[in-house]
Design a protein around this nucleic acid. Sequence first.
DNA 1: TATTGTTATACTCTATAACTATA
DNA 2: TATAGTTATAGAGTATAACAATA
Lengths: 148, 148
Amino acid sequence: MDDVEPEPFTATLTFRMGILGALITDRLAERTRAYGLKVKHVGMLAALAGSGPMSQLELARLMRVAPSLVVSLADHLEGMKAIQRLRDPDDRRRQRLELTDSGRDLLADCTEAARALGDDLTSSLDADERALLEDLLAAIARAEGLPS
Amino acid sequence: MDDVEPEPFTATLTFRMGILGALITDRLAERTRAYGLKVKHVGMLAALAGSGPMSQLELARLMRVAPSLVVSLADHLEGMKAIQRLRDPDDRRRQRLELTDSGRDLLADCTEAARALGDDLTSSLDADERALLEDLLAAIARAEGLPS
DNA sequence: TATTGTTATACTCTATAACTATA
DNA sequence: TATAGTTATAGAGTATAACAATA
């Protein structure tokens, strides 16, 4: 008689963030495909834009991916002239990666696509709710040590 | 002189939801591994709990995955006695899947793990903010036609 | 000998296509 | 002939481990 209705799995924050994160990432992938980029490529451009030029190993740690993945992502971006690889003259083992102007343009286009997708996703919210959601997500990201 | 600071990619709702969704899903996968379950297995249990017994094809549509994936997920859950497969006597092509009591228990354990992970993730928010975030995500999920 | 980047290989997840049985 | 489920195969994405160059 004092039983309470148990919270369904689909009502957990975990489930909803997981599903919505996958949904929006899929949609972003669709859009960035037009620029010849996977989502991880865009993540790499964004990391370089946000933290400045850095070595591949630093980038791997920042992006939380294996160093071998940075190689193939960087190969692709270098092939598109979106980044430059520069041997560090002080330590010739290190490749210093930096954005080119065209990489910066590409990132701007992808950022605009992301912005539009976010607006779509939150089109059922009013402006205050949308701003509140952004603040809450930003607070969590900050607490988790994520960029930016 | 009327340049405005452009919104960085990492500040978009799209990026933050994508990253946080992947993060929480990884953490959930770690926890459910102790029960012998992948996240998609839990999704299947949750779908059956939320919408009642259904055929594999219906489940594939609801979960937005290929029918062949439903086969292997169901094989695993049936092997654990978490679900039962019952041939529909009216149409012997159809397999009616339904939760067992032990499947319901398993789902309850995974739901508790998800709840705990959600609390952790939002530990930097106060109770009002947390409730607000849940409401906003629920509103978006509803608008996108997602469960529940 | 340790570190950075690279290459070779393998693993996980999932979809597509071919197939079987029922309708 | 069409549909539900199954099996076989393939592809995307990513990691691990072996290797090369430099320190």
